[in-house]
């Protein structure tokens, strides 16, 4: 359950970026399949923390990316969210991970009228 501390890091980052606390309408984040984060648990924690920290009740919009892999047998690049899937060309699971660890706060949307 490290999602609670991650939710607190998210509100800290948002507060620092805005330079103030404001009720937010939407928070856009990106999570990769190798980030080790449970999206539903994060959503639950963030909803609570955002409200407690003075950011209202924003909708948390999660952009789930897939991991990008390079097949070491046939050099095909492919994307998966599930690591049981092998290369779509040759079936091999011999591969190098190129990306998939992302966990970023991308942007926030504020409705100035609601402040």
């Amino acid at each position: 359950m490290h999602e609670m501390s991650l939710a607190m890091d998210m509100t800290r980052i948002i507060g620092e970026a805005l330079g103030r606390k404001a009720p937010l309408e939407r928070v856009n984040i990106t999570i990769g399949p190798l980030s080790g984060i449970s999206a539903e648990s994060l959503r639950f924690c963030f909803t609570e923390i955002a409200r407690m920290e003075g950011f209202g009740e924003p909708e948390l919009v999660i952009n789930h990316t897939e991991a990008r892999l390079l097949c070491l047998e046939c050099r095909t690049e492919y994307e998966v969210a599930d690591f049981y899937q092998g290369c779509p060309e040759c079936g091999s699971i011999s591969r190098r991970i190129l990306s998939g660890r992302e966990f970023t706060v991308d942007s926030v949307e504020i409705d100035e009228d609601s402040e």
């Binding site: 966990f103 706060v105 991308d106 942007s107 926030v108 949307e109 100035e112 009228d113």
Partner: peptide, 12 residues
């Protein structure tokens, strides 16, 4: 009116 989108792009 005044909807504002603020780009942050920071790793948590």
């Amino acid at each position: 009116s005044a909807k504002q989108k603020v780009e942050i792009s920071e790793s948590v």
